[in-house]
Design a protein around this nucleic acid. Sequence first.
DNA 1: AAGACGAAAGTGGTTGA
DNA 2: TCAACAACTTTCGTCTT
Length: 306
Amino acid sequence: MYYIKKCPECNSINLFSNKDKGEVICKDCGLVVEDKMVEFSQEWREFEGDGSAPTGRRTGAPMTYTQYDQGLGTEVGQKADLFKLSSKERNTIFRLRKWQYRISTAIERNLKLALAELKRVSSFLKLPKSVEEEAAMVYTQAVQRGLVRGRSMESVVSGALYAACRRHEVPRTLDELSEASGIEKKEIGRTYRFITRELGISIMPSNPADYIARFASSLKLGPETQSKAVEILEEAQHEELTSGRGPTGIAAAALYVAALTRGEKKTQREVADVAGITEVTIRNRYKELLDKLKLDKQIKKQKKKR
DNA sequence: AAGACGAAAGTGGTTGA
DNA sequence: TCAACAACTTTCGTCTT
């Protein structure tokens, strides 16, 4: 399949597109016109169709995405068979190799920077290693697909981290990510949505219960209150009070109610602050909880005790 | 005086024509 | 692409402890 585009180097219109590898190559001078030439399929195999070795061989030591080049490098057309080719073809190979080198080092440079930033943010948020690893993988794929173009590296890093947190059920709020990375909340949300859509990453809506432990500990609430909150959460889920609502709001309200019923009084303001929402939202959720779950009796009982 | 409550208007994002 | 819409926020006045 031929492109109508022109080669920027020699102006030839003789461009060849190799769909398998995502390359567009100028047939006259060997310039790689499109830069998406890094393999991004899920399997790590050898892609040399030149007969020097069986293709599709599986290779690979265990690799890690938090290393900027994943411990692997790529090279174009190797050694032995080079002198079987005409000089023109050989030239082509040389040029390809040169461009491959330039492009892959560009990507590597980017990754190196980005992964440093990723580690910084992730350690700031005290995220587990597995999440960091996942985020690095997401980011790597995003770079290879050219999704970073037009977006700041930092925002894509944050988006990847946010996605990774969600998938590992250790959700952080957008506000927390925003604070850790210095990127605007809506920007993170935007890139998060963009890259998950483009990379086909499916993510379950986050579960309010995942927030409870963290909120409770920063409010210094006892473990009994915490499990009470989870209990309330389950009832609320059963009553279908949770769908369509912000998970942080629900978690915060459940925690607030749990604290009341156990006499560990916290103000709405305090709870709202750690959950990153407003008092009003807590009040709304809280009211719904009282209506549906008949918790007011328990609260009154608690009041009489004092 | 501080916290809780609720009404009203505003914001940003989603959805469906 | 635009308007309607739901969830949430902001702001502010009033009531309760």
